[in-house]
Amino acid sequence: MSRMAVKRAGKTEPKPDGQPWAHDLYDYLRSQNVTQFSYVPDAGHRVMIDRSLADPDAYSVPLATEEEGVALAAGAWLGGGRSVVMMQSSGVGNCINFLSLVKGGRFPFLMFISMRGDFGEGNPWQMPMGQAVEPILAAMGVLCVRIDRPEDVLPTASAALTMAYQSGQAVAVLLTQKLLGAKQF
């Protein structure tokens, strides 16, 4: 139902938050001194984006295209900062060449990918990149960890963050459509 239709019906039921785990994830990343949150918006990252916008002690960086977030994170690391990138699976394709910087420079790197083109996808345009995410990231030396259930979000994010900032790895956390729900459009 469109927003207008809701108004006409005289009913404005508040939309349930739907992503309680995302608040925990944001709080966890902040507790681990992540201060830069960059993104091309996606519904799967809505809570994280809103939290970063409302956070006076963090930078919320709206990217024009996803690969900028890769370079941004490397620049932040040069300066002793921690910067994570959030994007939809379709944005992974835009990042390929810039991941050379992460691999060649042995930069720690942490990205969060909201999956489309995966479990239960209803839009065929999303399928090619969704299915290519893991092979592409593997080819560029990025380790992938998948999260299917809300209770796995924090332990997996913690493992990924440790692999990135203590072991110097590039790690992608895939928020799957089992976790986020599949879109029918």
């Binding site: 930078y59 990217l63 890769v70 370079a71 300066g79 910067s83 910087l101």
Partner: peptide, 15 residues
Amino acid sequence: VMGGAVSMGLGLALA
């Protein structure tokens, strides 16, 4: 990584 310098500089400047 052609095209990356400005974004990298931004990340450094914020850090």
